[in-house]
């Protein structure tokens, strides 16, 4: 596991190499040939699809206007399938009221995701109805879509240029939903030109007012993949924010796709849920 420092060093080296390339061979850098949609696709891959699979322990702090906090603690498992589909499994450790609750999503490109929830009190597995871009994930500022992705084709993407962001350079991409159902009217993303991780995202409502802001607060390289291990989503209008810490992150763990099934909802895989 590398530190932020090393990532910065790597970025610095990358930038230096880039500079040398520009000085030595005056050709456009390959990244410049990327379209806005390609940048978003690579950002989604870096943000939600790094490695073939992932395991992480998440701590979500839900903080309201008055500073009052609520905590959600969970283990998340993810595996990637061919063609960009993914399967997610989430086990809730805390708070006590949702302990042992499990949640599973099979995401698809181009059609509605399948979602299941297991309610331990009644031992019932049910499909979960949710509005992707609006329904809050467990009361946080993140929507279901923020957790498990949105089809790249669902928006029109425009590259607004490049801008410095933190210690790096970012593509600035504006995305406008094609349908009228999506919560936001416009999203502006700052995407690191090296790691392709979104560093910041601004969601504007349909009247053009800033509604939510996402920031990657700490990016660390884990198993070779840059990972936003601390991230925040702020609801600007309501003064509420959700801070998420990813720890115990591991990629390419060899998770069996068969784990993502009703069996695990009812009886979480002990080896993976620590």
């Amino acid at each position: 596991m590398l530190t932020t420092h090393t990532t910065r060093l790597a970025r610095g080296c990358g930038a230096l190499l880039g500079l040398l390339a520009v000085v030595a061979v005056p050709l456009p850098a390959p990244a410049q040939t990327l379209t806005a949609a390609q940048i978003i696709a690579r950002a989604q891959e870096a943000f939600l699809g790094a490695g073939d699979d992932m395991r992480a322990h998440l701590t979500m702090r839900l903080i309201n206007k008055g500073g009052k906090e609520r905590l959600r603690e969970m283990t998340m498992l993810r595996t990637d399938l061919e063609g960009g589909d993914q399967k997610y499994f989430i086990y809730f450790h805390r708070p006590g009221d949702v302990r042992d609750m499990t949640f599973m999503v099979w995401t698809y490109r181009g059609r509605d995701d399948d979602r299941w929830i297991f309610l331990p009190a009644v031992k019932m597995v049910r499909r979960l109805a949710a509005d992707d871009s609006r329904s809050s994930f467990v009361g946080s500022d993140f929507t279901y879509e923020d957790i498990s992705g949105r089809d790249v084709e669902a928006d029109t993407h425009t590259l607004r240029g490049e801008a410095p962001c933190d210690a790096a350079t970012c593509y600035v991409v504006e995305s406008v939903p094609l349908d009228g159902k999506t919560e936001y009217g416009r999203k502006v993303s700052w995407i690191d030109t090296v790691s392709f991780l979104p560093v910041k995202e601004e969601y504007y409502d349909r009247r053009g007012a800033l509604a939510r802001v996402y920031t990657a607060d700490e990016i660390r390289e884990v198993d070779g993949y840059p990972t936003a291990v601390r991230r925040t989503m702020t609801d600007v209008k309501r003064g509420h924010r959700t801070e998420v810490v990813f720890d115990d992150v591991a990629y390419d763990t060899g998770l069996d796709e068969g784990l993502f099934a009703e069996r695990s909802l009812r009886r979480p895989p002990a080896d993976w849920i620590k």
């Binding site: 499909r127 109805a129 949710a130 509005d131 609006r134 329904s135 809050s136 929507t143 919560e183």
Partner: peptide, 12 residues
């Protein structure tokens, strides 16, 4: 049939 409407409403 069950469906969510917006962020906070579910009808079934």
């Amino acid at each position: 049939y069950q469906r969510a409407f917006g962020s906070d409403l579910t009808l079934g």
